[in-house]
Design a protein around this nucleic acid. Structure first.
Lengths: 331, 331
DNA sequence: CATCGTTGGTACAACGTTGTAAAGACCCAG
DNA sequence: CTGGGTCTTTACAACGTTGTACCAACGATG
């Protein structure tokens, strides 16, 4: 592998002059520039990014820390973050935590400031305040989950409002026994979505019935199916279900079908995330559609801002838009 | 950020001694070792991976090059590759090519040998022989696509055989007008799956009807839906369809439903990939299920082998197992 | 007590790059 | 032809790490 030294020798100039050509420095004699460029071409020189970064004190990489790539929401988000990061010539290193708090902490501790310039973290179990003790030494942007009391930049939609919109949609359909699937003891987004659900019911003068609120410790299709099966076996089953993500909703659709319950006639279903598959499920799924590209771009922008601005910048909380995508499951 | 120098000063020893402690070198006086370890702890020293790699001549990172993370198959594969790579303490840098040949080439050229130790490439448009001119200078393992005539390690399932199994399954159901969705002018896997489809038909004494073979330039749900709509509009529509991936099949299921055609009674459908969503579609999808974890592990193993063994090693072609997952769409 | 091998420690150079500072070449005005 | 400025190039050091070579101390051996 050719280095600057090799090119310099071949072109008959100093290493620095080659470096200057490579970096587009203005004042190089045309004659030398030509010779250097020839030498670059014949050697097939490629800069050693590691050495360059060592010298420059940056790495050119971001870390994206998320629970699992096989979960459609995170797969889609990761793809968009990759694109957004590439616009600023960042490489992206992806780490999976599998949703365990221990691995979320370990990952952040391990990455440290040497491998990456910053991290975009989509925490599952980790609380913002864990970062306090951690101090990863690099800018961090949190996606989704959010704790106000910690000075960390954050991007996400207004979960409370989105959940209210979803629930209100079911109320507008005339449904009165509206269940919720996805309550969770300590997951922040779950708490917020539950709050939105509750507030919509209350505002409409409907009771909040605890037997219609089903916990889900995981947010996979299977959990949604189990929860729905449970709801349908109740003496008075619900006439609508708000699922805290699309996977739960997809599972719920299947459970309903297996139970012989028709969607949306007997039970209307709303999801959350607008996974690509939700437009093709049978029936297709009404869902809260966050603007994922906006989330990805905002996250990268926050990182750029923080890298430029430094620690003393006030932490920002960017709320990205969302919409309600109405499909067959509530039509 | 503390460096070896800082720790050395604090512990009152040389930089190298600290380095020795950090790297577990045996012969360090217990007394010094203790002092160094204390200093390490109080400074919170973390080795600068970049500098270490520069010195050692390796990077500790792999690249995973694939079309799009939002495509479930690649999302799932990426997750498994991440896990497999982590077992050997590799970081993984993911690059999306969006399926364009130009970006596949550009990515490989850009990554070069400095950022990464090796690359795992899942090409969409790129041919193995493109690598010849390219010579990325690092070990490369190809997933899926495969050209025998180029000395590059490869992992994947036997597409021809798998397609034959899928088609044979439909034949065994008594279907006689079996269509195929997903033919493609130059995509290698498409060619192989088409060949398997053909050979199964021929072996069963069934005609290969060209009007029942539908091209798909992309492999998304929408393309499957369009292809299926076309097939169902034929004067003599098929009684079974073999789709070259699950997304096409999911789209086909929806098109069938919208056309009022019942699956599997009127049209049986088989997919390929066993995406997680395919177990929850309505009806659930019969599909070829490659052992994705085996693919991921084999890919990482091939890389380790190649890094140890060097260029003169004969290229290996690992065929991973697959199975036919029979579900509602053919029951 | 001289010698040797083992153990423990250090200085230096090197990985490939770029910033700094300084020196050399060139040109033009005086 | 001198002085000053503008261009152009270079040597050197440094980023943080580790391999090599070497030195020093030590106990054991003859």
């Amino acid at each position: 592998m050719a280095t600057l030294k090799d090119v310099a020798r071949l072109a008959g100039v100093s290493v620095k002059t080659v470096s200057n050509v490579v970096n587009g420095y203005e004042f190089v004699k045309p004659d030398n520039r030509r010779r250097v460029e020839e030498a670059l071409a014949t050697t097939g020189y490629r800069p050693n990014i590691g050495a360059r970064n060592l010298r420059r004190g940056r790495t050119g990489s971001l870390a994206l820390v998320l629970p699992e790539l096989s979960i459609p929401y995170f797969g889609e988000m990761a793809g968009l973050v990759l694109e957004a990061a590439q616009e600023h010539e960042w490489n992206v290193l992806i780490e999976q935590t599998l949703g365990t708090r221990e691995r979320e902490r370990a990952t952040l501790a391990a990455l440290g400031p040497h491998m990456i310039d910053a991290a975009i973290v989509s925490p599952e179990a980790l609380h913002s305040r864990d970062f306090d003790e951690l101090d990863p030494g690099i800018p961090v942007v949190m996606l989704g989950e959010h704790s106000v009391d910690v000075p960390i930049d954050h991007v996400g939609i207004d979960n409370v409002r989105a959940a209210r919109v979803a629930t209100q949609h079911l109320i507008d359909l005339g449904r009165r026994r509206i269940a919720a699937i996805g309550a969770h003891p300590y997951r922040g987004t779950a708490t917020q979505r539950l709050e939105g659900y509750r507030s919509a019911l209350t505002a409409a003068g409907l009771p909040v019935r605890h037997d219609l609120i089903v916990q889900a410790l995981n947010y996979h299709r299977r959990d949604g199916a189990e929860a729905m099966a449970h709801l349908l076996s109740l003496p008075e089953p619900p006439d609508a279900v708000f699922c805290f993500n699309d996977l739960l909703a997809i599972g719920a659709l299947r459970a309903a079908a297996e139970h012989g319950t028709r969607v949306p006639q007997q039970v209307a279903v709303v999801g959350f995330d607008n996974n690509e598959e939700s437009a093709y499920s049978m029936p297709s799924l009404t869902t809260i559609a966050p603007d994922k590209a906006a989330i990805a771009h905002s996250a990268v922008d926050l990182i750029r801002r923080r890298i430029k601005g430094g620690q003393e910048l006030d932490p920002e909380d960017v709320q990205t838009p969302f919409s309600l995508e109405i499909r067959e499951s509530t039509r």
